[in-house]
């Protein structure tokens, strides 16, 4: 076990704990205010929880029960946020050499290490520049090199690409992918691609509690929480399995295909279906399909050559033509209908 992180912060209503194996990267997902940054701050030593335990490679960094609380600089935990925060008075090279020099590495050696890490992130050509003149993407690359040069035992990334232009994100993500390959790291993100490409595992926080924890691909293909479902781009409804159909929590009945491991009657389940599996009508259709809902359209969002209709809980992808034919605008009422064969039903763990 490489990292053990647990904390209770009453003020922010956070009470969560999880573990990470050495070399594993965990994506921490959740709504804004769900408590992701709070957990990172506890790990980095920037926030002291009422009760908490952070153990890294067997060494307790924080243990409120036993009065252990190492200061940030003695934790070996580097935090990379969406703002690169390069020291404005130092050159790029000296920024990256900052970590080694703080460890007492002689200036020359520290600069050599800095050059090494700069080339790892493809920013060696920036070495002599001052941070003021860098683009957002360049600065974030340098910030990554700087964090790595400090040789942290744990790397925390708090939405590292949130403030970057869309054009530079793929390249930087590729860089991070290489960098995180064998590192113990936690990345907070809102982007499903980050979770898919960078993380081995996903932990989903809701209102300060962990609601989902599992292999990235499994979570994204079979989400059990609303947030993970939205991240994965699927609709998700929770309810109870009757042996034949799902009794939805908000009332109503849903017929779908139960997936392995098969749920038993009375089990809590979630039903998921993709937005493009939804058929949209202006009025509730007669007869089959059985799974129909009256919904109020909240939002229309272009998605390639389709339009995604959003309601309070569900999404449906329809053609532009359909939108025009049905005269759908925000506020109008419509009927969503899904074939039972398009709905997967999973048992909740």
């Amino acid at each position: 076990m490489s990292l053990e992180l647990g904390a209770r912060v009453a003020e922010r209503d956070v009470d969560a704990s999880f573990e990470i194996n050495t070399g594993q990267t965990v994506a921490l997902l959740g709504e804004n205010g769900a408590g992701k940054s709070t957990l990172l701050a506890v790990a980095a030593g920037l926030l002291r929880p009422e009760r908490g335990r952070v153990v890294l490679d067997g060494q307790p960094l924080l243990d409120t029960d036993n009065g252990v609380d190492l200061p940030p600089h003695r934790r070996g935990v580097a935090l990379l946020s969406q703002d690169p925060l390069l020291f404005p008075h130092l050159t790029v090279l000296d920024n990256v050499a900052f970590g080694p020099r703080s460890r007492g590495v002689p200036r020359r050696d520290a600069q050599q290490q800095a050059e090494h890490w700069l080339s790892q992130v493809g920013a060696l050509d920036l070495a002599g520049r001052k941070p003021g003149g860098l683009s957002g993407g360049q600065a974030q690359r340098v910030a990554i090199a700087r964090a790595l040069a400090a040789d942290p035992r744990l790397l925390l990334l708090d939405e590292p690409m949130a403030s970057l232009d869309v054009e530079v994100t793929p390249a930087l993500r590729q860089t991070l992918r290489g960098v995180l390959a064998d590192r113990t790291a936690v990345i907070v993100t809102h982007d499903v691609l980050d979770a898919l490409l960078l993380a081995d595992r996903v932990v989903v926080l809701e209102n300060g509690r962990i609601v989902e924890d599992g292999d990235t691909r499994v979570v994204l293909t079979r989400p059990r929480s609303r947030f993970a479902a939205r991240l994965a781009g699927v609709n998700l409804l929770a309810g109870t399995w009757t042996g034949d159909h799902v009794e939805l929590d908000d009332g109503g009945v849903l017929f779908g295909m139960a997936a392995e491991p098969l749920p038993q009657p009375g089990d809590r389940v979630v039903a998921t279906f993709k937005p493009h599996a939804v058929a949209v009508y202006r009025d509730l259709p007669q007869g089959s399909p059985r799974n129909s809902f009256g919904v109020r359209i909240d939002e229309l969002e272009p998605l390639g050559d389709l339009i995604r209709l959003r309601t309070e809980q569900l999404s449906a992808d329809v053609t532009l033509q359909a939108v025009a034919d049905l005269d759908l605008t925000p506020g109008t009422w419509a009927a969503f209908s899904v074939k039972a064969t398009e709905i997967d039903v999973y048992r909740l763990a």
Binding site: A44, G45, L46, P71, P72, H73, R74, G76, V77, A78, L79, D83, L85, F87, F98, G99, S102, R103, R146, A147, A150, P152
Partner: peptide, 16 residues
């Protein structure tokens, strides 16, 4: 903010 970053990079209070 910069001081926090520096501490995360392993710099003690005096170095920061």
């Amino acid at each position: 903010r910069y001081e926090v970053v520096a501490a995360g990079l392993g710099a003690g209070p005096t170095t920061v």
